[in-house]
Structures are given as C-alpha cells and as structure tokens.
Design a protein around this nucleic acid. Structure first.
Lengths: 302, 302
DNA sequence: TAAAAATACTCCATAGGTATTTTAT
DNA sequence: ATAAAATACCTATGGAGTATTTTTA
C-alpha cells in the first residue's frame, strides 16, 4: 500500500528523489519500494535513463488503477465517518408479508421525507423467517405481525389492527348480512396462508377452542396477503386478514367483511431487533420514528 | 492491506477464528488486524456478541469498497501481465499536422485490423512540439514531417511525399497553365503555416536561395493543413502542402496544382522514438508495422 | 464446560533510515 | 562536476506467532 503510494508520487514527479521529498521518505526507501513493486509484478515500471525517469506503459496502467483504489479508500473513510455522525446510509429492513406490503411503505415514505439521505433495502418473508433473520443477525431491524419469543430480541409494539374475515359477495350472501358464528365459518370455502404466516398463527390461536380448524374447506393455501385477497376476489373462498389490507380494496363492491361477533381478534405488529447490537444513527432514528409516529401515520385504517 | 483482506474474510465468515483458518493465520493475529482497522477508522466493525460475531453497518460499507479495491488490484495485475505478453494496450501516439490527419489514420486502420486489442490515443501538434514530447518522454512514439535532430531520438523514414503548390483556379489562371518559376510565386497571395510546421520548414529550406520569402504576399498564417486548404478553396491565396493532402481534394475542380519545375521538393515523414526506452509488445509491433507496411499502404497517393 | 475472542508476551520480516558508490549529464 | 538512482548495511515498527485468560452460550 505504501509502495503504491510511493509509485504514484514517482509517476507524477517523474523522479524518485522528488517523490521521496513529497512523502517525507529517503530516496533509497522509494527506490526499494519501486523495485519491490516491479519484482512483484514482474515488470519494469520506470525506464531509468540517467537523470531522467520515465514511466513505462505498465506504469501507465498501474497508475490508473492505483488512483481508483486510493479514491475508493478515502471515499469509504468519509462514508463511514458520516455514518457515525449523521442519519445517513442504507437501512436493511425485514418485513413479514403484511408489514412489508401495507405498513413499511407508509413509514418509509414519511421517514424518507424527514431524512432524505437514508435509503432502504427491504427483505420480505413470512413472520418466522424475518424473526429468524433478525435473530441470526442477517437483518438489523424487522417488522413482524407476531411477538417474537427469542430471548435477546426487543419487540416494540408499533401498531394494532383488527383481523377480520373477508369474503366475496357470492359467499357473503349465504349469511344474508346477519352476524356469523364461528361454527358457521366451516360452511364456506377458505383461502388460507401458509405455515409461518403471522396472520395464520393469530387466527388459529383465536379459534383454537372452537375446534373448527380441521373442518375448514381449504381451497387454496397461499404465500402472501395479496395472493389471498386476489383469490377471494376471484370467488375462490373467504380469508382472514388485517383491516389495513382490506382498506386497500375499499373500492371493490364485490368484497365485504363478515360480521363475526365472537371473533374479536386484535392483531399486533412489532418492530424487532437484537438488544445487544449497536444501532447506527439512521437505525436509531428509524426505531424512534416507528415508536413515535407509526400509530399516527396508519391510524386512518383502523 | 492484509488487514483489509482479514476484514473481508471475517465479514464473510462472521467469525474471527474461521477467517484465521482461511488465511492461514492465527486467531489473535486476525483480532489485532480488525482492532487496528477499527482504531484507524474510529468505528466498531463487528458486534462481538459472545460466540457470535455480526458486522455493523460500517462493516457493510467497508466491505463493498474493499471488494472493489481487491478487484481493481488483481485486474491490474493481469492487465500488466498481458501487456508484456501480447500485442494489447493503448498506444499513445503523437503526430504532426499532416501525419496525424492524413497518414496515421490509414496506418492505424490497418494496424487495428491485424491487432484488434490495441487502442490508440493521438496527440496532434506541430512538428516541433511532437518531437519535443517524444524527447521529453511525454510520448512514446511520434510521426513527424521533419527529421528530428535531438540525439537519442531514432528516426525511421516511413514515407516520402512530394510537396506541391496548390492554388484556386482564380489564381492558377494568371499563369495560364504554363510552368511557373520560383520568382513568379511572389505574384500571387499566400496562405502559409505557422512557425513550427514541418511543411513550412521544408518549403522555406527549398526556396531559401531564391530569396523570395520576404517578398511573399502573406494573406493568412494558419495552424494546420486543413485550414490552409480551406483558405485556398476560399480563394484567399495559394499554399504548399504534401500531395497526400491534395489527394483528399481530388474531386474539387476549382483546385489545381501549379507546375513549378524548380521546386522539386520531396518531403520525408519519420517515425521517431527514444532509443533508450523499452517498447512494450504493442509499441514494438507498431514500429515494425510502420517500417514494413506504411509505404505500401500510402503509395497510391504519391 | 466448551467455543470464541481478547490479552499478554515474544519474534522476525520489512519499511524505514544513513553512508556510499555508480552512472550519465 | 553534479544530480539522480542504486547499493550496502543498519534499526525499529508492526505483522505474525504461542500461551493464557475472559466471556458467554
């Protein structure tokens, strides 16, 4: 590295001794650096012509690259310095299906408006995979639809939402707009989420005592909320999901929410992170932002 | 540098000891490298959480740049190796006005067809400035219209050409297509090249004994051949130049070459370079190519 | 208790120096 | 005669090691 530095100075100065002066080194030291480089590359870098020193073509090529290397190197130093001092950098966030699709974008939009120098990278997965990634350290922050149980994971409640049963009009009519009992839910075909989904876990937990899970007529088992909703719209069956999601489909007359008085299911969304990891300013700011503003930002939907 | 290498391995392995194994170093050595880097950057690069090691955001940023640095570094090694072994790389050539405009392109075209991995960078200047740059080492190779006198400069004759007087028809008619004496040249207005031009030097040298230089009616003193020719076409005056140039204007009926029997001026073009500099394969090949093929490539014009 | 990193030390290779010689202007 | 680089040789910092302790899963 110091050798490369010396090389650059010799290239610019076309002189070993002038380069030495610039670097506050002795001429022999610079000489040895250059010959060491030449030995390593197996090529002459300078034509030593008596009093004049001229770079060879190999030196030309090396200088171009060395320049880029040094630029990169002090660019990264200032970048890292900035990262410590200001709310800048890239936030690598994980979101389970509903948060990533319907919650995170809203928060990110508002956050970006306040901190324009922060960029995002979002990982989407089911609830479990996101919590695992936060736990293993692949992700610094995650927003999930279930409370993480792993020790060492902080879980800030940032949002509450109702879970409701949504149906296409063709299925809703069988209940004629009257309240629906839990048992009646076995009368319609279902679209459910795959294992690992927080939504599914919440629903299964809520209806566990009614013992209807095994009786459900499951027509489709899908990977994410959007797919489930599209299946419902296509008349495949009914599903459960957060009202935050249903909000997005408000315009659709063929979609309706069933009134199931016994299913008073509130759903919690958590911001989660390892308590033992140091958060850099941007991550710190994002956590604070979520705690302070998420509820207000998303309140219209609940 | 070794520290950065160690950092990259720790980042990838998420473990100091695994990184140490990969690098055939001891774990304490890797530890000390990382802490040395952390001290230099003033930032924690890894969260040491008991048995698990996780990169901080600063590490993320550093890793991205380190990658680029290492890539550049071994890219340059292979590039330089190639430069020694094959006819590849960039040839930085200098050409005085006529060579750069009318000779070099032809040679470069034929050379590039044979050696497609060679690229060119061309410096244009007057004869003297190009010779100076070759002499000072700014340029490895130059093609000039006069024989360089500096000691240590090789000058390979690669082409000979006739220098002729070109005139617009309006000036030619005053001689009624008859042979023109040197003295008669003082009867028409002139466009001449600036000092430093090889063409100008050759002409001045040829007519020196006739003592007409001071009598010439100079209407314009221009920087390059193309400008001179356009001036002639515009009826500003006559000029002298190589037949290689006149060839390019063959289609113009309003342009003609005066028959000056006493001016039997041959012009030489030389490829010049310092004898004491090592030429890399591509430069070597170019020199050989010029010596062997330039005359044939450009013979149609003489 | 075992695995991982830190600490404490020892060692030597190499980046650095000075003095001098060689070379070409 | 002199300026520039090479050579010879010396020194000391820091990269590398081993042995051991600390920490936490």
């Amino acid at each position: 590295m110091r050798k490369l530095e010396a090389f650059c100075r010799v290239y610019e100065q076309r002189s070993f001794s002038k380069a030495a002066k610039e670097l506050f080194l002795s001429q022999p030291t610079v000489s040895s650096h250059i010959s060491s480089l030449e030995a390593e590359l197996g090529v002459l870098l300078f034509d030593r012509l008596g009093r004049t020193t001229l770079p060879t073509e190999a030196a030309e090529v090396l200088y171009d690259s060395a320049h880029v290397v040094f630029e990169k190197l002090d660019e990264v130093k200032t970048k890292i310095q900035l990262l410590q001092d200001k709310v800048v950098g890239e936030l690598h966030l994980g979101g389970s299906t509903i948060p990533a699709t319907y919650i995170l974008p809203v928060i990110m939009g508002a956050f970006a408006a306040q901190y324009p120098e922060v960029s995002f990278q979002i990982d989407v997965g089911n609830c479990k995979s996101i919590m695992d990634k936060v736990d293993s350290g692949d992700l610094l922050l995650g927003i999930v639809g279930a409370k993480p149980h792993a020790p060492g994971l902080e879980a800030d409640l940032i949002l509450e939402d109702d879970v409701v049963v949504v149906a296409h009009s063709c299925h809703a009519t069988s209940f004629a707009n009257t309240p629906v009992s839990i048992q009646d839910l076995a009368l319609v075909p279902w679209v459910i989420r795959k294992k690992g989904s927080g939504t599914r876990a919440a629903f299964e937990n809520a209806v566990e005592s009614y013992n209807i899970l095994s009786q459900l007529d499951v027509r489709a088992c899908v990977d994410n909320t959007a797919t489930a909703m599209e299946c419902v719209l296509a008349g495949l069956g009914v599903t459960v999901t957060s009202t935050a999601v249903v909000e997005r489909y408000k315009g659709r007359a063929d979609l309706c929410v069933l009134d199931v008085p016994d299913l008073r299911l509130k759903r919690q969304f958590y911001l989660t992170y390892r308590t033992d990891r140091r958060l850099f300013p941007a991550a710190e700011a994002f956590v604070r932002f979520c705690r302070e503003r998420a509820r207000a930002l998303l309140s219209n939907g609940t």
